[in-house]
Design a binder for these strands. Structure first.
Length: 586
RNA sequence: GUCCCGGUAGCUCAGUCGGAUAGAGCAACGGCCUUCUAAGCCGUGGGUCGGGGGUUCGAAUCCCUCCCGGGGCACCA
């Protein structure tokens, strides 16, 4: 509709140019927006105000001329000038009835479109280190990323959902060593667990699996293990040096092959856990991309070489640096350390180079807000490689803080003291969790109120919306009990009978739904859809309380049932896009 | 110190990339259940849009500056 109206305005513009009212070279983007206030019509354009300076005419006068030049349209009932020079469009009732017909004919497809025209978009999200179960902070990235991908999918983009698995690096070595130490404990070896190790119960579980598989085969004494290892922090030592020492000793005692088996057991167990968790949360991936594979396939080396050829690198203090400051970064970054090991950043350059090579039209990275300092250097690397860094959108998700009874819940993977995503899902349910996570703009800090998410009352927006859907289903059940019929064709015929303000509001919302999906998708803002659904549910509940649907008058009854059926379809489709179920009864 | 994100009703948040009298939900107060689920609805009160400058027909929105909260500034991942 927006497009249709701006097309009309565009033709009017051409006409005024031909008349000499406007310079022929006038080039302007025509903006048509939904009005906030129904008394201002359905859509409004500020075109006349924007052009008034160029045309050297008063906005209202110019608006009159534009209106006079508008070609006729079957969708538009009236056009008027208002306020300082707005052009307000009033749509015909047929335009709205058409939306109802669309909702019912298209069903689940209503709101979907082909705006994306099959362009490929990669969405990478969550990508939490596989060093422990997902916690509630990851949950927000999961819900947000999945919804952004689903929204883009609804617009006809070809989406590729990806999880970057950090299966290399020091954190994973710490995990492997933590698992090994728990295993030794199960073998009866007495030892003090390092302060910097992973202490969660899941590490014991993996240690137990290891023990089941190998028995005492990997057993070494505490003396052998701690030989030459620097003291831990509580004993006046350094916890980092201590854990690094333990990693080294573990590698030596176990040898490369067996160490790798311990390492992989930890990795696979946790990854499997994460995978299942996300799957149950309705978050599906097309690909789990291994960081280790980048080194194995030589992609990291190739990325570094390409950067060296580009001339944006130099050596200093025995390390190889990337001159990211040439592209606006705060400081230059190391790619290869003085000990010869590549940095995480080097892997990330290779990973993004790989994404670009795969030829996506757009690449979206969804990161925790604590990684925002990382954006400039990744974009810098892409520019240095000669790639189009503007293809990459990095969306930053702020942390979610859980509240229970006003009390803040602490979380830290290392200490093992945290609320996992699974615990959250079990406590409040998938629906509430998915909805609450996307209720707020992603860059907004979020207070996640567990008590509210659990409450089965109108305070809880999820229940409120689902209840609207269930209530409509209930009306149709009642209809059958009363041996009444719903004739959709007759309903469509009689939509003209719907003259109540409540009905008008629902008609507008039904028609607006595809626009909401479009904006929410293109701006990566699922919260807009969440708010829309809340408003739509409110409009329905209000209507429900004010009027009977199952009335004697068959024509009116059919019209009302057709209307609420369309509303139900919209609620169902919207909830579905958010990963929330739409139950028929509650 | 510097950079990023926030600061809108008592609370939690919207505000459609400059538009028409700043909105919603909770909370508070007052009403509505022999009627399709009261898991609902109706009504009332509540605001210097953090402060101060500026840009223009017009600013919560853009620019400058200051204040407050959170985060980032590794040869960690």
């Amino acid at each position: 509709m927006k497009q249709h109206l701006s097309q009309l305005l565009s033709e009017a513009l051409q006409a005024l140019k031909a008349q000499g009212v406007l310079p022929v070279d006038t080039d302007i983007a025509i903006s048509v927006e939904r009005t906030r206030d129904r008394s201002h019509g359905d859509f409004a354009s500020n075109l006349a105000m924007v052009l008034s300076k160029i045309a050297r005419r008063k906005p209202r006068e110019l608006a009159e001329q534009l209106i006079a030049a508008l070609p006729p349209s079957g969708q538009v009932r009236n056009v008027e000038v208002a306020g300082p020079g707005f052009i307000n469009f009033f749509l015909t009732t047929e335009a709205y009835h058409n939306a109802v017909a669309q909702a019912l004919e298209l069903g689940q497809a209503y709101g979907r479109s082909q705006i994306g025209a099959g362009q490929s978009v990669q969405v990478e999200f969550v990508s939490a280190n596989p060093t422990g179960p997902l916690h509630v902070g990851h949950g927000r990235g999961a819900a947000y990323g999945a919804t952004v991908a689903d929204l883009l999918d609804a617009l006809g983009y070809k989406t590729h959902r990806e999880y970057y698995v950090n299966d290399a690096g020091r954190q994973m070595d710490i995990l492997a060593t933590s698992v090994y130490l728990r295993y030794l404990d199960l073998c009866g070896v007495e030892l003090t667990f390092p302060s910097n190790g992973y202490k969660g119960d899941y590490v014991w579980d993996i240690g137990a699996s290891l023990h089941r598989k190998y028995g005492d085969e990997l057993k070494y004494s505490a003396a052998e293990l701690f030989e030459g290892v620097p003291a831990d922090a509580p004993a006046d030592g350094d916890k980092e040096e201590h854990i690094d020492g333990l990693i080294e000793r573990s590698k030596i005692l176990l040898d490369a092959t067996r160490y790798r088996e311990v390492f992989d057991l930890g990795l696979d167990s946790i990854l499997e856990n994460i995978r299942r968790d996300l799957e149950e949360f309705g978050v599906h991936y097309d690909e789990w991309f291994s960081e280790r594979s980048l080194a194995d396939t030589g992609a990291v080396t190739r990325a570094i070489e390409r950067l060296q050829q580009s001339g944006y690198t130099y050596e200093k203090d025995g390390a190889l640096w990337f001159r990211s400051t040439d592209f606006g970064d705060e400081k230059d970054r190391v790619m290869v350390r003085d000990n010869g090991q590549t940095t995480y950043f080097a892997s990330d350059i290779a990973y993004h180079m790989n994404k670009m090579e795969r030829g996506y039209a757009r690449v979206i990275d969804i990161w925790g807000a604590d990684h925002h300092g990382y954006v400039p250097r990744v974009k810098a690397a892409l520019r240095a490689l000669g790639d189009d860094a503007d293809k990459l959108d990095v969306l930053l998700v702020q942390f979610a803080v859980l509240y229970r009874g006003g009390e803040k819940a602490q979380m830290s993977t290392r200490s093992g003291d945290f609320v996992t995503l699974r615990e959250l899902r079990q406590e409040v349910g998938n629906d509430a969790a998915r909805f609450f996570y996307v209720m707020r703009k992603c860059e907004q800090h979020m207070d996640f109120d567990l008590d509210l998410a659990k409450s089965e009352s109108s305070d809880n927006p999820v229940y409120y919306i689902q209840y609207a859907h269930a209530r409509i289903a209930s009306v149709f059940r009642q209809m059958q009990e009363k041996s009444l019929q719903w004739d959709n064709a007759a309903g469509m015929e009689n939509l003209g009978r719907l003259s109540e303000a409540h009905e008008d509001a629902l008609l507008v919302s039904i028609a607006r739904y595809p626009e909401v999906v479009e904006v929410a998708a293109l701006q990566h803002e699922p919260h807009q859809l969440a708010h829309f659904l809340r408003d739509l549910a409110n409009e329905f509940h209000t209507y429900y309380n004010a009027h009977q649907f199952l009335v004697e008058d068959a024509a009116l009854r059919n019209a009302r049932l057709t209307l609420i059926k369309a509303a139900q379809q919209v609620i169902s489709n919207g909830l579905n896009l958010l990963g929330v179920s739409a139950p028929d009864s509650m």
